[in-house]
Design a protein around this nucleic acid. Structure first.
Lengths: 168, 168
DNA sequence: GTTCTATGGGTACAATATAACACTATTCGC
DNA sequence: GCGAATAGTGTTATATTGTACCCATAGAAC
C-alpha cells in the first residue's frame, strides 16, 4: 500500500534521491523525443545538476559546478541555452522570486504546470503541489476583470518541514 | 451610485489618473508617518514615477526618468534604497516575474497584500485584485504538507482588457 | 550532395542589484 | 543648547543575472 502513496511534498533530507533523478531524466528524454528535439549531453549535464536535489539552484551555480566537474570553462550562455530548452520541455521550472531553477519531480497534467511552488527561505528546498482550487479561484477572478490569463505563477515562501523543526 | 463602485481593476487608458496618484501619495505619507519614518523628497519622487501610471516600471527606468527630469546624475543605489523603503511600507510592490515595480493603488487589508497580481504581457499594465478563496486554498495546501508560509506571491501574466481587444 | 534546422562555442555586453564608506539631517534625552 | 542615536543620502565600485551576435558543426530532409 505504501508504494501507492504519493511522495511527500518535501522528502526527508536523507531520502534516496536516485529514483527521483532517474525518473526526471526519463521524463526529460521522453519530452525531448516527443518534440523532435534531443536531450543532448550538455542539456543532460545541466539537468543532472538541477535535478540532483530538490533545491533551487542559480544558473551561475550550475555553471561553476559543471566547470569544476569537467575541468572545462563554460560560458554562461551555454548554461542558459540548456536551461531554456529544459524549461521549454517543462522538466525544469524557474523560481521567479529567486532567479533560480529547480527540477520538476512530478508529471504535469496536460495543461502544463498547474501547481503551486513552495520554496523554503532557509534551505531553498522546493516542492510543487497540485492545488486546483487555487487556480480555479485565480482564473475566475482574473477573467472576471476582463483579463485573459496565459500563465499563472504561484510561489509561496516560508519554512519547509525540516527547517521549521530545526532551531534557528 | 457610481461613486460607490470600486474602481475597475484595469482603468481605461484615458482615465483621469490624478486621483489615483494623489491617493497613493496620501497613503504613502500616512504609512511612513505611522512608522516614525519620512516620505522624503527622494522617496516621493521615486514614488511619483512608479505611481504615475498603472504600469510596472524597472528601477533603471525610474533612474533615467528622474535623471532627465531633474538634470542630475543619480546612482542606481539611490533608487533602490527609495524603492526598498516604499516596498517596506507596502505602497509599492515588486513584479517578481519581470523585475519591475508598481504602485499599490488600493488599500491593503491588515494582513498585508493578499491580492493577486494581473500583469499584461504586452503593455505591462498591472492590477491587483483581492481573491480570498485563492489564498485560502494556497495556505491550506501549503500547511497540509507541513510547510509554514510567510509570503504568498501570485502573479498572472496575460492580456489586459485593452490589449486583448486591440489587434496584434 | 545540398539545404534546412537544431545545437552550441566564444566574445562581448546589457540589465539588475548591492557592498562599503563617508557624510548630513533629524530626533530624543538631558 | 548639546551629545548621542538613528534615519537618510551621496559616491564609488562591484556583484549577480541574463543576452546579442557571429559563426562552426551536426543531423535530418529532400
Amino acid at each position: 500500500m505504501r508504494r501507492t502513496q504519493p511522495a511527500p511534498a518535501f522528502p526527508s533530507p536523507g531520502h534516496d534521491h536516485a529514483p527521483c533523478l532517474k525518473e526526471t531524466l526519463k521524463r526529460a528524454s521522453d519530452a525531448f523525443e516527443a518534440n523532435g528535439l534531443r536531450l543532448t549531453p550538455l542539456r543532460r549535464r545541466v539537468l543532472e545538476e538541477v535535478a540532483g536535489s530538490h533545491h533551487a539552484v542559480g544558473a551561475y551555480e550550475i555553471l561553476e559546478r559543471l566547470s569544476q566537474k569537467e575541468r572545462t570553462r563554460m560560458a554562461p550562455i551555454s548554461v542558459y541555452r540548456a536551461l531554456d530548452a529544459l524549461l521549454e520541455m517543462g522538466v525544469v521550472h524557474r523560481l521567479e522570486s529567486r532567479n533560480a531553477y529547480f527540477a520538476c519531480h512530478a508529471a504535469h497534467g496536460k495543461h502544463g504546470a498547474r501547481q503551486i511552488v513552495l520554496a523554503c527561505e532557509r534551505c531553498a528546498m522546493v516542492a510543487e503541489i497540485a492545488t486546483p482550487a487555487a487556480f480555479e479561484a485565480i482564473d475566475g477572478a482574473a477573467r472576471g476583470t476582463g483579463f485573459a490569463p496565459t500563465r499563472v505563477m504561484v510561489e509561496v515562501a516560508g519554512l519547509c518541514t525540516s527547517c521549521a523543526a530545526s532551531p534557528q
